[in-house]
Design a protein around this nucleic acid. Sequence first.
DNA 1: GGCTCATTCGAACGTTCGTTCGAACTGAGT
DNA 2: ACTCAGTTCGAACGAACGTTCGAATGAGCC
Lengths: 219, 219
Amino acid sequence: MSAASTSPRASEHRRRAARLPATRFDKRLGEILAHATDVFCKKGYEGASMRDLSRTSGMSLAGLYYYFQSKERLLFLIQKHTFTTIVEQLKTRLEGVGSAEQRIRIFILNHLEYFLSNQAAMKVLSHEDDALKNGFASEVKAIKREYYRICVSLLDELKRERGLQFSTRIAVLSLFGMMNWIYTWHHPRVDADADELARQMSDIFLCGVMNAARGRHRE
Amino acid sequence: MSAASTSPRASEHRRRAARLPATRFDKRLGEILAHATDVFCKKGYEGASMRDLSRTSGMSLAGLYYYFQSKERLLFLIQKHTFTTIVEQLKTRLEGVGSAEQRIRIFILNHLEYFLSNQAAMKVLSHEDDALKNGFASEVKAIKREYYRICVSLLDELKRERGLQFSTRIAVLSLFGMMNWIYTWHHPRVDADADELARQMSDIFLCGVMNAARGRHRE
DNA sequence: GGCTCATTCGAACGTTCGTTCGAACTGAGT
DNA sequence: ACTCAGTTCGAACGAACGTTCGAATGAGCC
């Protein structure tokens, strides 16, 4: 995991010193974030103690505070980095893809691929959704809203393209539920991989919204 | 919330005394469970302290321990009662309903209705899924498996009835994801009620599995 | 070898945690 | 009025919590 250097103390140091190209601090921070992600995934944010993180990352308890100011900020860094990465990756993949259906399939595939490749981080992102407070919470919520809006616009495209009528909000949030819930049940050894999962969920969801919207069940 | 009298200490008392019809203890316990459910919902199991529960339920810290032996057992009682109730209610509603599609619609409606009527309890059940350990965990897991199996059998019915082919496991868990995820976004004041939600999710899911299974996307 | 800043750590801070204990209170049965 | 089990509580327990501080160590530069 790579991490942006956001610690005021450390960035100040590096600006004044300007010796090492700022990679050393960021690299070590990234390692700590990776270990912390595993611990938060296994024990939950509240259930994990700084001493757990110290043991897992092989750094002393006090040493951790050189890299971030508080436990809450640590969770914030994990969530922000994870969410930012998945949104960026999505935008890249969506470029130049025309049909609305294909764009939604890419959205689903991107989400599930990233989810299964970074299961711990995505569980922490999904499960510790309201663990942050105030400024930290609102910054993550902003990225979340952007991600949500992208999905809404994709679905609205589909509705326009095909003349469908259904509640975009319910459809989008149902789709997120389908996808995010996998952190509660997916076991890499026995369950389908991201491609297969994306194919099946896309089929269910797309056939669902396209047929239900004009089928016998809806007005 | 009514609660079974499962405390060894108290049941022993009541068996010997046999004065009050065992309702007094259970009623008070039920009130405490209801308050505790709200606190667990708001702050999470690990994040909620016994002192929080004491304040909310208006009983002294030590007094709480007369009604249950530990914080973990308290969570267990909440989860077991909630899960047992929803399963029982489902079984009653499924009696005498013939078509597989209709039975699945009832399953979804029952789940969402109970979810929205008992949002706090269902969030605690969903979100604190792996907070329990050992014996407590396995007992709740057993009910969960039974509930899962019911949904699997309903979908297998549908597949047999209509000659469909798709992964039951992925379909069932996608459906659970759609439904359970609502605890992260549903606001009773602005969002659709259980009937409307059940109709839309049922349409998406049923049209999804029925068309995707023989449509152009699947072999 | 000394200088300087980046990094690490042992030890302790004050607070909060879940839980326990013995005493006090309550209320129906005699 | 007395009894006795059911119920409640104040006070305290040891443990674990997040965080801080000053000293020790590390590594690149003169």
